[in-house]
């Protein structure tokens, strides 16, 4: 259990965290999201007793972290995987950590095995890749078999296999009833890992919600393409839906689930050669026969269209675009945003 209450942290005149409150419950993976500079790492540092709060409280298992005598048995944390002495061997790095909390060396060998670093235990950390350092940091967090785990950007630098491994590990840890807080600035990553989301921007809480609620809240209706868009629009409006022409060729209208992964994200009409596709080449604003429908779900749209003999080329619910939801949520709160052209 992690609890942050009205937490404020100032560095000189800069407010890094501003009256932030949220709770992280056991048995779930909670994604801690925000743009760079939003205050995620600061919040974690305060939670771990590294930085003192300017006001408010950050509690772990009901008390301040600094009051814990052998904290690694209760809380495991990965803050910065690069923060290791390059001259020390992996086994020694975990060894001194374990020793500081009265944990035996057998456990060190166990976690090295668990994160897949057993083969390089006697190698100096200086020669490790970023991905290996991430694994070493995760091993350190697991040493004391803690009930609360905090990971700051754990997939940075990992290859796809490593990313998947971390994802599974987080889910497995939560399934065992542990409290897991994972920070990230990538919504696409959290979408696959987290059950709940705490979104912050400029140090303030933007959303504290489940992944599903957030998706529903930012539902964009259903994208429909048909060679007879006018007929279809009339039918759907009659059925109680709201219909707008969808703009093609822009990233915002890509009917993709993850923002990045879907191959259709580059303009939906073009590969089919239906005629409207020509509009795609000339860019934004041109109607392409694609409609954005709200108020009706994909099944209802399909049935209405079939009842009226209108062919459909595509029916894509756009409720899963968490990336967009996140961008919308954090718009204006990015600390170091580039100026849009």
């Amino acid at each position: 259990m992690i609890e942050v209450r009205e937490l404020t942290k100032r560095y000189g005149g800069t407010v890094a965290v501003d009256a932030l409150s949220f709770r992280v419950r056991p048995g779930t993976v909670t994604g801690f999201l925000g743009p760079n500079g939003a205050g995620k790492s600061t919040t974690m540092r305060v939670l771990l007793g590294l930085d003192a709060p300017s006001s408010g409280a950050a509690l772990v298992n009901g008390g301040p972290y600094a009051a814990l005598r052998r904290p690694m048995h209760e809380v495991g944390a990965l803050l910065d995987a690069g923060a290791v002495h390059g001259g020390r061997r992996a086994f020694d790095h975990l060894g001194w950590l374990a020793r500081s909390n009265g944990i035996g060396t057998r456990r060190v060998a166990e976690v090295l095995e668990q994160v897949g670093l057993a083969g390089v235990a006697r190698k100096r950390v200086g020669g490790f890749s970023l991905g290996m350092r991430q694994r070493l940091g995760i091993a350190a967090a697991l040493l004391g078999d803690p009930g609360v785990l905090m990971f700051d950007e754990p997939v940075n630098g990992l290859d796809p296999d490593g990313v998947r491994w971390v994802r599974r590990l987080m889910r497995a840890l939560a399934a065992e009833g542990r409290t897991v807080l994972v920070s990230s600035h990538l919504m696409s990553e959290m979408e696959l890992t987290a059950d709940r989301l705490v979104v912050i921007g400029r140090g303030r809480l933007i959303a504290d919600t489940s992944v599903r609620e957030l998706a529903d809240r930012f539902a964009r209706g259903v994208l429909v393409r048909s060679p007879r868009p006018e007929d279809l629009a009339a039918v759907l409006v009659a059925a109680g839906g709201t219909v707008e022409p969808a703009r093609s060729g822009t990233a915002e209208d890509a009917p993709s689930g993850t923002g990045e992964g879907a191959p259709s994200g580059t303009g939906e009409g073009a590969p089919n050669g239906t005629g409207e596709g020509a509009a795609n080449g000339t860019g934004e604003g041109a109607p392409s026969g694609a409609l954005s429908v709200t108020g009706l779900d994909a099944a209802e749209i399909g049935e209405r269209a079939a009842a009226h003999g209108i062919p459909l080329y595509e029916v894509t619910p756009r409720s899963a675009s968490l990336e967009e939801a996140y961008m919308e949520l954090t718009a204006g709160s990015a600390e170091f945003g580039a100026v849009a052209s």
């Binding site: 007793g49 600094a66 690694m72 944390a77 803050l79 910065d80 500081s100």
Partner: peptide
């Protein structure tokens, strides 16, 4: 930071 997380006092 790792050290002070392991030994908070």
């Amino acid at each position: 930071r790792t050290s002070l997380v392991a030994v908070p006092s």
